[in-house]
Every structure is written in structure tokens, then in C-alpha cells.
Simulated scan of single mutants.
Amino acid sequence: MSADPLRLALLGLGLIGGSVGLAARERLGARVVGFDPDPQVRALALERGVADVVVDDPAALGPADVALVAAPVQALAERIAQACEHVEGAVVTDVGSTKHALVESIKAPNYIGGHPLAGAEVAGVEHARADLFAGATWYLTPRADSEGILLERLHRFVTGIGAVPTVIGHADHDRLMAAFSHVPHVVANALVTQATRALGDEAIPVVGPSFRDATRVAGANPPLWAGIYDANRDAVLDGLDATIALLAEARALLAAGDGPAVESWQAEVGAQRRALLDIGMTGGPLREVRVVVPNRPGVIADLALTLSRAGINIHDMSLSPQPDFRSGEVALWVAEGHAERARELVEEVLS
């Protein structure tokens, strides 16, 4: 990006889009132009300082460095296509919680999928806040042929608004989202239904913390979640099949009446939960891995996806083209404990 203020185009000015606008203006000094199909949302976004300018047509957004689409699942493809067509010079991304179908269907070379793991119990631009993404994981799902300079620009933008960018393949993203988000929502819905049927007509105050914790997301935002279930249907169905099989195993274990075995199962699951919650939370010092790469399409995306599959996150990156533009120097910053493995993988990709 140039030394001039970063130019951001927002297509969608709700909670997520509005928070991106506030964070970009506050943390990056960005100039933000926004679009939303709802005139009341446009007026409120301007009043709240989400954008410097709002327009009533995506064609009027003008050129930008980054164009971010924050629209309902069913409108994402159309809005992304509008951003790719009308926002000249931008790397175009989105915030949708499913990625495979979008990445496969949108062939524009300047589109790179994204998904921040951030949100709130409330919706709407009136609840937008600049710190919504502070420390939050923000998935980036480039294609194998995505341009390195665009991936670097988007990576820096996400870091700049306070999030932690994590590169991942789009199919892997949807599989993990099904396991860690979408299937838990379905299970929470089922638990509420099961408890309601168990209570029947009785008015006994039996709701305790276990039920509240396990069902916090039940019934959340019906239009949004209906779209998410549909967009990630195959992965959600696979996850539900796996969950049903595990419940059958748990039933058999409990039916056997083997106390030590049940205690061992409970302890093992507790250890697994702690390990899952600790992933990515330890931080630690970073080390630079610097390498010269050929100037060929997709080489940076290939490196990032390869490291991601090995569980190595790129915390920062920098690209420096050589004078002849036939190659370039790439600096990647990864956790110190991952540096040697990262270097080995990079060398394998380039060999």
C-alpha cells in the first residue's frame, strides 16, 4: 500500500462491516467509503463515523486498496461480484462463515475469502465497535493462484485492525467451522428441544449453569443461521453423523455400568477440551524466515497454505521484489518454535 491513507470500500454496514470501518479509521487512519442497500443503515453508519462517505450504489464506491463485503450469506456472491467489478485496484474479501462454495464459484483474481471469528449477541451498525476484532482469529482462504501481493496487503490490513490473520484452505475452513461452530449450534438447538419435552407441563425451576452454558447459542439469529446451515450443508451433515456416532458410543459406555471406564472417559474428554482451548493461545516470541521465491502466480499462497496445513501460522509477512521482477524476497514471521520446520517446508515447496 502507498504512503497515502489506506482506502477501504465497505459493502455492508451492519455489526461486522461497521466495526471494520470504525477499526480501520481509528487504527489505520483509513478513508472509508461505504455502501448498504438500506438507507436507514447508511444514515446511521455516517452518523456513527463508520465511513467518511456512504453511497447508494456499489458502482459509486470508487477505487480502493481493500474492499470488504459484509452481507448476509445469500447475498455474498452478488456483493463480491459487484466489488470485483466496481472497486478498482482493490483486493476483495468477505466475512462469510462458509468459504468453499464462494472460493470455487468466484473466479475474479483479486478475490480472497475471509472470515473473522468475532461477533456479538446483538446485530446492527448501532452496536458496531472498533475493538470487536482485537486478538480475534481472522481466517484468509486464498486460492492456489492468488497473487502474493494481494495476500500480503490483506494480511497487513487484518493485522492493522487488531485481528490475527490465519491462512487456511477453503475446504479445511468449512470442515473446521462445521465441527467448532455449526454442529454445536445444531446440538444446542436439540438440547433445548429435549429439555422442553422432558419438562412437559411442569413448572419446575431446573435450569442450571450446565444447561445455560451448553445452550447459549440455541436459536440464534434464525435467518443468518438458516443460511449458514444451507451454505455448509455437506460438512454439517458429516459432522452430525460423527456426533450421532459418538453419542451412540457414549450411550453404550453408560449402559455398561463400568464406573472406572466412565471416569476415564470423563477425564480424557476434559484433557482434550483443555488442549483444544489452549491451541493458538500460548503466543511467544517470533522468528523471521526469509527466502527468495520466483515471481510466479500463487507461490506465496502455496507457501502460506502449506504452513497452515502443518499448523504453522504466519503472524506477519513482507514481500520485496527484486529489480528484475523475476524473483522476490519474502520474509515470514512465525512462532520461534515453528521456525525450523517452517524453513524446511518452504524449501520443499520451492524445490
Results as ranks from 00 to 15, higher is better:
Pro5Ser: 05
Pro223Cys: 05
Gly311Thr: 04
Arg79Gln: 11
Gln272Tyr: 10
Ala214Tyr: 12
Arg287Phe: 05
Arg25Lys: 15
Gly113Met: 08
Ile204Trp: 14
Glu329Pro: 09
Tyr111Phe: 15
Asp52Leu: 06
Pro285Ile: 02
Met1Asn: 13
Arg309Ala: 14
Ala51His: 04
Glu147Lys: 11
Phe35Pro: 06
Ala242Thr: 11
Val20Lys: 01
Glu147Ser: 08
Leu286Val: 11
Arg42Trp: 00
Leu224Ala: 10
Ala214Ile: 04
Arg156Thr: 08
Ala83Tyr: 03
Glu47Ile: 03
Pro165Arg: 08
Ala235Gln: 13
Glu126Trp: 10
Arg31Gly: 09
Ala128Lys: 00
Asp324Gln: 12
Asp172Gln: 13
Gly337Cys: 05
Asp145Trp: 13
Glu85Phe: 06
Ala220Gln: 13
Phe35Gln: 05
Ile80Thr: 06
Gly200Asp: 07
Val206Pro: 01
Glu26His: 02
Asp4Phe: 09
Asn232Trp: 04
Tyr111Glu: 06
Trp225Phe: 13
His155Ser: 08
Ile279Asp: 07
Val87Thr: 04
Glu126Tyr: 07
Leu61Arg: 01
Ala23His: 00
Ala339Gln: 12
Val32Pro: 14
Ala256Cys: 11
Pro294Ile: 02
Ala3Tyr: 10
Pro63Asn: 06
Ile161Ser: 11
Ile312Arg: 00
Val66Asn: 01
Pro72Asn: 07
Ser19Glu: 04
Ala220Ile: 05
Gly96Tyr: 02
His338Cys: 07
Arg273Glu: 03
Ala60Lys: 15
Gln322Asp: 13
Ala218Arg: 11
Leu237Arg: 11
Val299Trp: 11
Arg233Pro: 04
Val186Thr: 03
Leu117Cys: 09
Asp36Arg: 02
Thr166Leu: 13
Asp172Glu: 12
Gln272Asp: 12
Ala250Ser: 14
Pro285Glu: 10
Met1Val: 10
Arg290Asp: 07
Tyr111Ile: 05
Leu199Thr: 02
Thr282Gln: 15
Arg251His: 12
Ala83Ile: 05
Ala252Met: 10
Ala304Gln: 09
Ala70Asn: 12
Ala188Glu: 00
Leu253Ile: 09
Arg48Gln: 04
Leu276Cys: 08
Ala130Trp: 00
Gly14Phe: 00
Gln74Phe: 09
Glu202Gln: 13
Asp38Ile: 04
Gly311Asp: 00
Ala144Val: 05
Glu329Tyr: 06
Pro109Glu: 02
Leu76Gly: 02
Arg233Leu: 10
Leu150Lys: 12
Asp258Val: 07
Arg153Asp: 03
Pro184Met: 03
Leu102Lys: 08
Ala64Lys: 02
Pro205Ile: 06
Ala339Glu: 06
Phe325Cys: 08
Ala171Asp: 12
Arg273Tyr: 12
Gln74Trp: 12
Pro116Asn: 01
Arg216Ala: 06
Ala118Glu: 09
Leu307Thr: 11
Met177Trp: 01
Leu76Glu: 05
Gly169Ile: 01
Pro209Lys: 13
Val92Lys: 08
Glu104Ala: 14
Glu88Trp: 10
His115Asp: 04
Ser146Arg: 15
Val192Asn: 00
Glu340Phe: 06
Gly14Thr: 00
Gly62Glu: 03
Gly298Tyr: 12
Arg79Met: 14
Phe35His: 15
Leu6Asp: 10
Ala220Arg: 10
Leu151Gly: 02
Val50Asp: 00
Leu44Gln: 03
Ala248Pro: 03
